[in-house]
Design a protein around this nucleic acid. Structure first.
Lengths: 345, 345
DNA sequence: TTGTAGGCGTTATCAC
DNA sequence: GTGATAACGCCTACAA
């Protein structure tokens, strides 16, 4: 239990030593310098008085806040709380707290991170990068140690952790082809977001490698990974008059939007048209019909991002020899009730 | 864009004034004391240099961090990100940032808030209170300004914002009675959480006021508002051999657990048994069957909690005349596909 | 091994 | 109305 605001000076008095000795005794890094016995006396005094170091005073002095910022596009998409939980788990043990910034404005990608930077976070985990996002700069005029997660971009030179979207789309396309589909549509995500681009490119590539065609009218783009965008895009697809028996959604929410539009038009999933998602977000296995999708390990991505951040934060040579690694996690196909052989077969 | 670490002293130099004058000129509270013209000169210099006050230095001096902690039981339940978003919206405009603490350990209710307190949050929004939770204490040995939200407890003397659970259960019970149900079971939440207690009591009260019986075997309790708990409780209910045609779940997740157990036993919802939830969490309208539930305005609750917190934080007389208000927001019945007249009618 | 002194950037209390 | 000075609590050369 946290009790009173005891200062280091009081601990020092209680232990009969001077402040600096108390400081050294309590700091793991410098504990070795101090006499074994006095160190224990100080520790005991600190314990007895319920001493808690003042984070602001310490931070002002050390120029570190033990705080890491994490920016996510949208907290209401359940995958991002999951990502957060992963990162938090990795960082909490080392004494770091997470400060969340939510927002997905492409025009002002730094908006969410700006407030975090102003608060002097020691590092930044970006899950909302746009392709042209630039690395926000820190008060010290040096870039904040940054880790990209979920989305990547070449314009930020930072370690990145993401899902192997190319492979994921491959799982989906092969699954549909095995079911007998040949006319497959794709509702792509925004093309200023890496996931949107990669999944679309992967879709084309895998279709071709299966010997299938990808006519332009069967690929439509959205302005966001949201249900409403999925609804609109699905309408465009249907209104184009093009024939297809399956829709590959760029993520689960877009695919959910397809559910809505198809239901509106009395088109049955999967009897008339198969629909697939991407992410395997919470509860997507319980919608009607349960959605065939690809699991993206968001929790693990977050946990890994946290660990990479830790290694960035504790690397002695700051910036020089740190190698920006790029990790791609393996997706897993989740076959459920939204896919079936095409009507004609 | 945040650029360099310019200090107040540099701004003062640039403007040709002393640091203290610069401080006063930049602080809205004290701007009036300083000469109109020099104030503008300082402001211009600050703007030109891209000055950002150092939050740690300021906080160390003023003993305020412009940070509010929010503790939630479980970020993976989509209602809590919603709550968070509401609070964040209210507080951000006033310059406050939110620090999240997640956890729901009844044995150590302060666990989640402890880390926040240690970081000297200016206030605490508790959404994870247990009935016997005590008010965590601040470093200053004075209680942190606290707002209870979502869950309440008498053992903490703080303003509270919650849903009118009693009324909500009334909506549910009347709905089921109108459908013709008379044998209605309740799967209650944990009885060390206000929502669990109130909803259970309300269930009994409303049943009686409808002239219906509540035999003890038709009321089972869970250890948490989770799907797994709902599954287990539903099994106990069925295995008791008692007859019933409807289950009132203490929240949506518990009701989802019922879906699972009932499906396992080939019992159809709502044909054989009707099931209701509580919260109207995201996507619960898309499960199979779409769940009849009661909407709890979590976003509004969060926003209100943020505003109450602001008034606590800006009240001049600290603690003396502040009246702990208690607000109950109105729930809304959402009739969907998980409820129907009982089989015999 | 321990004590001394200075300063991180800001605000508040003086005096001018 | 403005300037000088101290202090918030902590860490860290440097000196002893």
């Amino acid at each position: 239990m946290v009790l009173s605001s005891v200062t280091l000076r009081e601990v020092a008095n209680e232990a009969g030593v001077h402040v600096s000795t108390a400081s050294r005794a309590l700091n793991p890094e410098t504990r070795s310098i101090v006499n074994e016995k006095t160190a224990r006396r100080v520790a005991a005094a600190a314990e007895r008085l319920g001493y808690r170091p003042h984070p602001l005073a310490r931070g002002l002095r050390t120029n570190r806040t033990l705080t890491v910022g994490i920016t996510v596009p949208d907290l209401l998409n359940p995958v991002f709380p999951l990502l957060y939980a992963g990162a938090e788990t990795s960082l909490r043990d080392q004494g770091y707290s997470l400060l969340v910034g939510a927002g997905d404005d492409p025009a002002n990608p730094v908006a969410a991170s700006g407030i975090l930077i102003d608060r002097h976070v020691d590092g930044l985990i970006m899950a909302n990068a746009h392709i042209h996002s630039s690395l926000p700069q820190m008060a010290s005029n040096q870039p904040v140690p940054t880790v990209l997660v979920n989305r990547t971009t070449d314009s930020i030179d930072a370690p990145s952790i993401a899902c192997d979207d190319h492979a994921g789309i491959g799982l989906i396309v092969r699954h549909l082809v095995e079911l007998g589909h040949t006319d497959i549509a794709h509702i792509a995500g925004p093309q200023d977001i890496s996931n949107g681009v990669i999944r679309k490119q992967a879709f084309v590539a895998w279709m071709h490698s299966e010997g299938l065609d990808t006519p332009p009218e069967l690929i439509v783009e959205t302005n966001g990974f949201h249900t409403a965008e999925g609804r609109k895009a699905c309408k465009r697809l249907l209104d184009s008059g093009a024939r297809f028996t399956a829709i590959v959604g760029a993520n689960d929410l877009i695919a959910l939007g397809c559910y809505d539009t198809l239901a509106e038009r009395k088109i049955k999933v999967p009897a008339d048209i198969s629909v697939t998602g991407f992410d395997d977000m919470a509860f997507i296995d319980r919608v009607n019909p349960p959605m065939t999708t690809v699991l993206v390990p968001f929790y693990e991505m977050g946990a890994l991002a946290g660990q990479v951040m830790l290694s960035l934060l504790t690397s002695d040579d700051s910036g020089a020899g740190t190698l920006p690694t790029s990790t791609r996690l393996r997706p897993v196909l989740k076959t459920r009730g939204s896919t079936a052989p095409p009507a004609g077969s």
